[in-house]
Design a protein around this nucleic acid. Structure first.
Lengths: 212, 212
DNA sequence: ATCGCACCCGACTATATAGTCGGGTATAAT
DNA sequence: ATTATACCCGACTATATAGTCGGGTGCGAT
C-alpha cells in the first residue's frame, strides 16, 4: 500500500493547504499548533517529518519553507513542462517533448494560462456580439496584467461585477469598459473599479470554446 | 494615471513572483537582495513599501509573509467567490451571488477546480472510447487526491507520461491504469509511476467539452 | 539652486521562528 | 511482556529574518 497517511497528518496537511490558499504563504509552527490545538513544537516537527517522508510536502531550510507537492497518491517534482504546455501520450507511451509551433497556433492565448482559474456564470446580453450569451459560463484566469482588447471580469465596486471588453487607448475616455452590444454605453474606468481576470474560455450548454 | 510602477519595483515584483512559482513559498530579504544585486535591506524595504502602496503585494507581520495580489492594473482582495464559482453579469451590472443548485448541476466536476491547470496534447488512440482522440488537447488540473475512475495524466518514469483511466479496487491488480481501447492492456501501478493531474476538459479542434 | 524622490549603503538590533532535549501516554502488534 | 509507533508536553536554544539608523547619490522639477 502506498500513500499511508494518518488522520492527524491529514489534518495538518489540510491546515497547511488552507492557510496557503487564504494567505498566499505558508504557516508558521505557531499557526499550525493553533489550528491543530497542540501546544508543543515537537508535535508539528513529528507530523511534518511524516508528511515529508510520505511525499506530501517538501521542506527547505529557513522559516516557512513548506510547500505542498502537487500530488497525493505518489509524489514527484513538477514534470518538465514548458510554459505549462507539453505533450502527453494516450498511446502505449511516448516521451514528453516541448510544445511545437503548431501547438502554439492552435490556442496561443490559452496555452499560457496557469495559476488561478475560476468559473463564472454570466447574465445579460451586453456581450452578445462577442459571443457571450445570457446564462453562459466563462472560465476566468486571474491575471496581473491586461492589454487593451481583453475581455475581462471587472469589479465595479464592493458588490457589483461585470464582464466587458477592457480598452486602454490614447484618446478620451482613455481607459474604459466596453460592452459588445450597441444597446449599452461605455463605462469609464474609475478608482473604485478593479480588474479581476481575463475570460479565456466559454461554456455554452456543454460545449467549450475559446474566447477572442 | 494608475498603476504607477518603476522599473526597479517591477523587477522585484517579478523576482517575488518567480520565486513563489518555483519554490512554493515567498523569498526572504536575503534572497531578494541576491536577485536584485543590492546589498542593503533598506533597498528591499523601500521597494516592498512601494509595491504595497501600489497594491501589487500584501504583507503581514512575520517572516516571509508576502503575497502577490491577483491584479496588476488595480488591486483588490479576492472577490467573494464560493468555491471559486460565482456569478458575474454581462448586463448593465448585477450583484454577485453564491452559486445556485442549478449551477452545480451544470458542471459539478469542473466547478471546483482551482490552482494549477495545464494544457497537454494527446497522441495515440488508447483513450478513444473515452472520447479522447489522437491530437486532442486536454486541460489538466493538478490534484492532491484521485478517486478510482478519474482520467489522469500519469508519469510512468522520468521521461514518459500517458493519459489513462486510474483505477483502484479491492481485487488484483488493485491499482492500475486502464486504457479506453480494447487493443491495449492494463498498466499495473508501480513505485516509479506518479499521478500528475486529472483531465477535466478537452479541446477538439476549437470545441471544448468536459471529460467524464 | 535646492527640493523631493527613487534608490542605495553598511552596521546594527529585535524578535519571530524552527528546532532540540528529555521526557510522557496510549494503542496495537509480536 | 515487550517493542514499536503515533502523537504529545514544556522549557529551552540557535539563528534566520525583518527591520532600524543615519547616512549617501543621482536626477528631474520648481
Amino acid at each position: 500500500m502506498r500513500g499511508q497517511i494518518t488522520k492527524r497528518q491529514k489534518q495538518l496537511l489540510e491546515v497547511i493547504y488552507d492557510f496557503i490558499k487564504n494567505s498566499g504563504y505558508p504557516p508558521t509552527f505557531e499557526e499550525m499548533r493553533g489550528n491543530l490545538e497542540v501546544s508543543s513544537n515537537q508535535s508539528i516537527v513529528d507530523l511534518l517529518q511524516k508528511l515529508k517522508n510520505g511525499g506530501y510536502i517538501k521542506r527547505d531550510e529557513g522559516a516557512r519553507s513548506i510547500a505542498i507537492l502537487p500530488l497525493g497518491y505518489k509524489t514527484l517534482d513538477r514534470p518538465p513542462l514548458v510554459a505549462f504546455a507539453g505533450v502527453a501520450s494516450a498511446g502505449p507511451s511516448i516521451e514528453m517533448i516541448e510544445m511545437s509551433g503548431e501547438w502554439q497556433t492552435i490556442s496561443a492565448d490559452v496555452a499560457k494560462f496557469a495559476d488561478q482559474v475560476s468559473l463564472f456564470k454570466v447574465f445579460g446580453d451586453s456581450m452578445i456580439n462577442a459571443g457571450i450569451d445570457d446564462g453562459d459560463v466563462v472560465l476566468v484566469k486571474d491575471q496581473h496584467e491586461f492589454v487593451s482588447g481583453d475581455i475581462v471580469l471587472a469589479r465595479l465596486n464592493g458588490s457589483e461585477s461585470t464582464v466587458k471588453r477592457f480598452i486602454s487607448e490614447d484618446k478620451p475616455p482613455y481607459v474604459y469598459l466596453k460592452p459588445e452590444n450597441p444597446k449599452y454605453s461605455l463605462i469609464p474606468f474609475t478608482d473604485e473599479m478593479q480588474l479581476i481576470g481575463k475570460i479565456i474560455s466559454l461554456l455554452n450548454g456543454s460545449d467549450w470554446r475559446p474566447v477572442k
